[in-house]
């Protein structure tokens, strides 16, 4: 059965389209009415971001329409692109060639395959246990000890963030929640909407009120005002979405707050890596946003925790 037969998702989608419509209007008005709006980089970037949101929401909606397999495949692709961006700026040597092939062509597809067939016992340990032990073995066969531990650690870390953590989004489909059968995709909508709206509202509040920079050494655009305003607003969004979840309104609010805070720190951690590598964005795939990893860093940090909260208390 397809998810959109459930009216709650149609409601949410309509609400999203409405919000994006309003955002697009605001963007166009700012461009037309503000002095120099057409050349102002912030306005140009704002409009590019809004346009990209339309595309991303449409792709997600399409995946939900087609069904669970499409959602798993979509996130496999997102992981693939994120890992690609991560490894592209990470130091590896000739001896890691096989390791990289294993990551992209074995562990990534296997992780999502296991999620597709619902094998929790293996997908939850595939990368933390098997990849963790097998990849350095493959690396030693390259017979190159230069910066060995650093190379092994970085590849493992990338695999954890880009593949293991992100794969917990489609893994939500496999949870067996009493009284919620067939509606698991709504959990994905709840998670994505809460965490991504937190990013958006942090951006909006930061641009409107932001004064006190939080950690300028890591991310010059993150402000205290943006953080508080963004997290509170999207926690309210999460609470308001309680009816698509198995949670009560206050549980939804608490969970939303948790994933928003995790998402914020996810963005901060990945920014710290970018700063250290001397790059501004992870890539160029999404116009106005940067790379795939720039867009999903917050999801990567919140998805596994969200998954385990739901799994522990609701199944």
């Amino acid at each position: 059965m397809t998810a959109l037969e459930n009216s709650p998702l149609l409601f949410v989608l309509a609400g999203l389209a409405g919000s994006l419509f309003v955002a697009s209007i605001i963007g166009l008005v700012l461009r037309a009415c503000l002095a120099g709006g057409r050349t102002n980089p912030v306005i140009i970037n704002l409009n590019a971001r809004i346009n990209a949101w339309w595309v991303m929401v449409l792709i997600l909606a399409l995946a939900f329409c087609i069904g669970d397999t499409a959602v798993v495949l979509l996130f496999a692709f997102i992981s693939f692109q994120a890992l690609r961006e991560y490894i592209s700026v990470t130091y590896t040597r000739r001896g890691d060639y096989r390791v990289l092939l294993w990551c992209f062509f074995f562990f990534l597809p296997l992780q999502y395959g296991l999620i597709g067939i619902n094998w929790y016992g293996l997908f939850s340990i595939l990368i933390p246990v098997y990849a963790f032990l097998l990849l350095p073995i493959s690396s030693t066969l390259g017979a190159d000890t230069t910066r060995f531990l650093e190379r092994a650690a970085k590849v493992q870390w990338g695999l954890m963030i880009c593949v293991y953590c992100l794969s917990h989004v489609p893994a939500l489909l496999s949870l067996n929640i009493p009284g919620f059968t067939g509606r698991n995709s709504q959990l994905i909508v709840f998670l994505l909407l809460t965490v991504q709206s937190s990013d958006v509202f942090q951006y909006v509040w930061g641009k409107l009120l932001g004064r006190r920079k939080l950690v300028p050494e890591i991310s010059p655009s993150k402000t205290l005002e943006g953080l508080i305003g963004g997290v509170l607003t999207s926690t309210a969004v999460g609470a308001a979405l309680w009816w698509v979840t198995p949670f009560t309104w206050w549980q939804a609010a608490l969970i939303a707050l948790t994933v928003n805070i995790l998402g914020f720190f996810g963005g901060l951690v990945l920014s710290a890596i970018k700063r250290d590598r001397g790059i501004k964005d992870w890539g160029h795939m999404i116009e106005g946003h940067g790379g795939m990893l720039d867009r999903v860093d917050s999801i990567s940090f919140s998805a596994p925790i969200f998954f385990h909260i739901v799994r522990y208390w609701w199944t």
């Binding site: 693939f80 690609r84 490894i87 590896t92 000739r94 890691d96 060639y97 990289l100 992209f104």
Partner: peptide
């Protein structure tokens, strides 16, 4: 990055961004 994606002796391409 192409040297990492397709090094000497390699046949498969690691899909790195070059």
């Amino acid at each position: 990055n192409l040297g990492r994606a397709l090094p000497k002796g390699g046949i498969l391409v690691v899909p790195l961004l070059c």
